[in-house]
Amino acid sequence: MKTPRIVRNKIALAGLIVILLYVLMSIVSLFWLPFNPVAMNSAEVLQGPSLASGHLFGTDEFGRDVLSRIMKGTSVSFIISVSATALGAVIGIFMGVWAGYLGGKTDNAIMRFADILFAFPSLLLAIFIMAILGEHTYNVVLAIGIVYIPQFARISRGSIIALKGNEFIRAAKSNGAGRTYILRHHLLPNITAPLIVQISLSLSTAILLESALSFLGLGVQPPDPSWGNMLSSARKVMMFAPWTAIYPGLAIVLLVLGFNLLGDGLRDILDPRLRNVR
């Protein structure tokens, strides 16, 4: 039996393992946590990491277990990043596919809208949207999703333009195939490779954006745990209780690294020109 290419690609496999470990931790957190992640305990304020006390990652300035809050924050980060990426991908791909296929005024109108969104740095655009919509988890998903729309629109548009002049498309048209049929059966299946890679990379930046918004007080609101608001609250005590910032920071770094490794590996796997480079 032939070994799957993702297993043979060490970069993609390493990223996938990291992501699966986080998924497992997220699932476990739904049913079990070492301590209540929001319960304060004045008797255990700023305890260092200790196996004896059961607080493996220590406690924060309110006596809350850091490990439990990181585990709970994993679910929050996954839900927000996956939902936001899915929203941006669906809308962006729809816009890009029709812009590339129809061309003309439709293409010009859609891509000028994408250019307007591209004119703003991602974080500033997300902050602007949150300032309008207000502080709520659903609004975080919407803000990050809007940030991703032009990225997916450009990638899908470029791929469609590169394909729509090929012989098999002209043959389908000569056989009486309609626009929707050609898009569904001929064009979309042939542009999935770059979109899959972009989705993987977008998930990593979605985690960073969510963490940044929560850090600034615009994302998940305390006492609900989020890696971003954990880092924000740790600013006050990190000089003499560094574990309150180190462990949430490492959680972000490792998950972002996992998605980036997976995206890089998938690019090598799905692009025939790169399969034999490494």
Rank of each mutant, 00 (worst) to 15 (best):
L87G: 04
L123H: 05
G48T: 12
I70N: 00
G92Q: 04
T85S: 15
S77A: 10
S75F: 15
F78D: 02
H55T: 01
G73H: 05
A109H: 07
A99Y: 00
G92I: 07
G58Y: 01
S75H: 15
P34S: 13
W32C: 05
A52L: 13
R69H: 11
F94D: 03
L33I: 01
Q47M: 15
G48Y: 06
D60Y: 02
D115Q: 09
P121L: 13
A119W: 13
L123P: 03
L33T: 04
W32A: 00
H55S: 01
A119K: 10
I93H: 02
L51R: 07
I127C: 06
M40Y: 06
F62G: 07
G92S: 10
P49Y: 04
V90F: 15
D65S: 03
G63W: 05
S77H: 06
G88L: 08
A43V: 13
F31T: 07
Y101A: 05
A86H: 02
V76P: 04
F113Q: 02
I127Y: 00
G104D: 14
A52F: 05
P37I: 06
V97Q: 02
G104T: 09
I80L: 11
L46E: 04
G54E: 01
F62M: 12
V38Y: 02
S122W: 07
L102F: 10
A109L: 14
A114H: 02
S77I: 04
M111A: 14
I116K: 04
A84E: 02
